[in-house]
């Protein structure tokens, strides 16, 4: 469609934004178990409020492929019956949805007041130095992603790092190499989050 008698508009890539878009990813579909879980959850909402299941649907996506790709947002939109822009709106608003592939362990280092006072900045520096990455990046081995986040709600045990969904507390800067080694060798068992030990006590 051209609106100007002397100018072609539509097919030309005219003034495209130069921003780099996240990769669209491969065609996405839930595994049968996740599809079943999704189908069960949407029944909790009224039929005309199916959109409300968007957060749960995106969590399932992230569980399955580790991050939320363009293709998966299209899939979620078709599943809950809203526009793709609506899904992107939600997925970009919440910082815990990752728009790029992340490592096995996502290190969310708190940088809000209590943690900052107890050296969170140096924790970030130490992790960066040990892995050779900046906040927001994934190390070459694909094991760690470093992210700075705001308050994680564990100020009494600062500085705190959230690894995937669990806390690691009182992480002094000098303990960082040991902490990373622990994750490499023992995995999530190396974490000290108090909530992980409630039952033991």
């Amino acid at each position: 469609m051209s609106f100007h008698p002397h100018m072609e508009y539509a097919p030309a890539r005219f003034h495209k934004s130069e921003r780099v878009l996240a990769d669209d990813g491969e065609t996405f579909a839930y595994t049968p178990e996740r599809q079943q879980a999704f189908d069960e959850v949407v029944t909790r909402y009224p039929a005309d409020r199916r959109k409300s299941a968007v957060l749960f649907a995106l969590y399932l996506v992230q569980q399955q492929q580790g991050y939320v790709s363009g293709a998966s947002m299209r899939f979620v939109a078709s599943q809950i019956g809203c526009s793709t822009a609506d899904v992107e709106d939600v997925a970009t608003y919440y910082t815990m949805f990752y728009r790029h592939p992340v490592g096995t362990y996502v290190l969310n280092v708190c940088r809000t007041l209590s943690c900052a006072l107890l050296g969170a900045e140096r924790v970030v520096e130490q992790i960066s130095a040990a892995l050779g990455i900046k906040p927001g990046e994934t190390d070459p081995s694909g094991m760690f992603t470093l992210i700075e986040v705001e308050c994680l709600g564990a100020c009494d045990r600062a500085p705190v790092v959230m690894v995937n969904d669990d806390w690691h507390e009182r992480l002094a800067p000098e303990q960082v190499p040991a902490f990373l080694d622990g994750l490499r060798t023992r995995g999530a068992a190396a974490l000290t989050g108090c909530h992980l030990h409630v039952e033991e006590k």
Binding site: C82, A85, D89, Y93
Partner: peptide
């Protein structure tokens, strides 16, 4: 009728 525009990021 088709919400093609959204607010992304925060």
């Amino acid at each position: 009728g088709d919400a093609q525009i959204g607010i992304v990021d925060r």
